[in-house]
C-alpha cells in the first residue's frame, strides 16, 4: 500500500480520509434537523424581502386604496383634506357612491378622450410591434453594415429625453416646420400635423420603439438557426418560415413587448401634452387638467381607475404570456 511509504519513518499514519476531509469544527451546527434549518432560512428570506414589500405597501398600496375609496365618495380620514380643497366632490352617505363615475361617463369630453386614448394606444402599439418585428427580422436574417447600423440606430431614441423628442416632433410637423417648408419648395401644401393625434401617434411610436425593438429582437435572435433550416428543408418559403416558425417561436417576447408598449402608451403624458390638441386628448393629459387646472380631484381619480382597468386587461395578457413561457420551460425541464 502506498501509505506504507509515508509512514515508514515511524511518523503516525494519517487518519483515514473519511474521518478527516469534510468534517469541519462547525459541522455539527450545520447538521441540524432539516425542518428547523428550512424554517430559519425562510424567516431570513422573509426579513430580507420585507423592506421593499413595506415600501410598496406604504407608498403605493395605501394610496391606491385611499384613491379608490375617494373615487367612491369616502372623504374621511386621509382623504379629508383633498375632499375639502376639491370641487364637485361626491360624498358617500354610508354606502359608496358612483356619482363621480356617473359624472365622467355622462361627460362627452371624457368619452371622446377615452376613445382617443384607446385608438392611439391600439394604433401606436400596432405600428410599434410591426416595426419592431420588421427590424428584428431584418437583423435576424441580414448580416452586414446596414444591419449593424440599424441595430445601433434602433436604440437611439432611448437616449433622447421624451420632452426633447416631443418638441422636435412638434417643430418638424408644425405649420412652419421642416416638412412643410421642404414640401413648399416643390409646390406641395403638406398638411399640418402638429397638435393633432397624428403627432401623438408618431411621438408615441418614437418613444416606445427602442424598448420594443430590444425585446422583440432578442426574442427573434433566440430562435435557433436549425429551426429555420429545418423549415426551409421541409420546403417552406421565407414568408412561410417567418409566419409558421420564427414568429410563433418568438411569440412570448412579442406578446410581452406588446403589453409593455400598450401600457406605456396608455398612460403616457409628455407626448400627448406637448404634441396633441387641447381636446380631445389622451386621458393622461386630461387627468392632469382635472386634478390641477379644474380642481376636480375625484373626477381625476375616476379617470385613473378607468385607465387602470384597461391596463389590468393588458397586464392579464402579460401574465398569461409569462405563464405560458414558464410552462414551456417546465416541460423542457421535465423531459431532461
Amino acid at each position: 500500500m502506498t501509505t506504507g511509504l509515508h509512514t515508514g519513518s515511524g511518523a503516525p499514519a494519517r487518519p483515514a480520509p473519511a474521518a478527516s476531509g469534510p468534517v469541519q469544527p462547525d459541522a455539527p451546527g450545520r447538521r441540524r434537523p432539516a425542518g428547523g434549518s428550512a424554517r430559519a432560512g425562510q424567516a431570513r428570506g422573509f426579513v430580507m424581502a420585507l423592506p421593499p414589500i413595506l415600501i410598496i405597501a406604504l407608498f403605493i398600496g395605501v394610496p391606491i386604496v385611499l384613491a379608490f375609496g375617494f373615487s367612491l365618495g369616502f372623504t374621511g380620514g386621509l382623504n379629508h383634506t383633498i375632499a375639502l380643497i376639491g370641487q364637485n366632490v361626491h360624498e358617500a352617505q354610508g354606502l359608496p357612491t358612483f356619482g363621480a363615475y356617473g359624472d365622467m361617463f355622462a361627460d362627452r369630453r371624457f368619452l371622446g378622450d377615452l376613445i382617443v386614448t384607446v385608438v392611439v394606444t391600439l394604433v401606436s402599439t400596432a405600428v410599434v410591434v410591426l416595426l419592431a418585428v420588421a427590424i428584428g427580422l431584418y437583423l435576424k436574417f441580414a448580416d452586414g453594415v446596414i444591419a449593424k447600423a440599424l441595430s445601433a440606430l434602433a436604440v437611439v431614441p432611448l437616449f433622447i429625453p421624451v420632452v426633447i423628442a416631443s418638441w422636435a416632433i412638434l417643430g418638424f410637423y408644425s405649420a412652419d416646420g421642416f416638412l412643410r417648408s421642404v414640401a413648399a419648395q416643390f409646390g406641395v401644401d403638406f398638411p399640418v400635423w402638429s397638435f393633432t393625434m397624428v403627432t401623438v401617434i408618431i411621438g408615441s411610436v418614437w418613444t416606445s420603439l427602442p424598448f420594443a425593438t430590444l425585446l422583440v429582437t432578442s426574442g427573434l435572435q433566440a430562435v435557433p438557426r436549425a429551426m429555420i433550416d429545418a423549415a426551409r428543408d421541409a420546403g417552406a418559403s421565407f414568408a412561410r418560415v417567418v409566419a409558421s416558425v420564427v414568429i410563433p417561436m418568438a411569440g412570448v417576447p412579442i406578446v410581452i413587448a406588446t403589453t409593455f408598449t400598450a401600457i406605456g402608451i396608455l398612460g403616457s403624458f409628455t407626448v400627448p401634452y406637448f404634441t396633441g390638441p387641447n381636446s380631445p386628448n389622451m386621458l393622461g393629459v386630461d387627468m392632469s387638467n382635472y386634478f390641477s387646472a379644474f380642481n376636480q380631484p375625484q373626477q381625476a381619480v375616476v379617470m385613473a381607475f378607468v385607465v387602470f382597468a384597461i391596463a389590468s386587461g393588458i397586464a392579464a395578457v402579460y401574465v398569461w404570456a409569462n405563464f405560458r413561457s414558464a410552462k414551456e420551460n417546465a416541460g423542457k425541464q421535465a423531459v431532461r
Binding site: 435557433p224 436549425a226 433550416d229 428543408d233 421541409a234 409558421s244 416558425v245
Partner: peptide
C-alpha cells in the same frame, strides 16, 4: 437550388423540432 427546392431531407443534430 435552395434547400426548399432540393430533393433531399435532413435530420438535424438537435432534431430541430418546432416546439409550438
Amino acid at each position: 437550388l435552395g434547400p426548399e427546392q432540393r430533393p433531399s431531407a435532413m435530420v438535424f443534430q438537435n432534431y430541430a423540432l418546432w416546439p409550438h
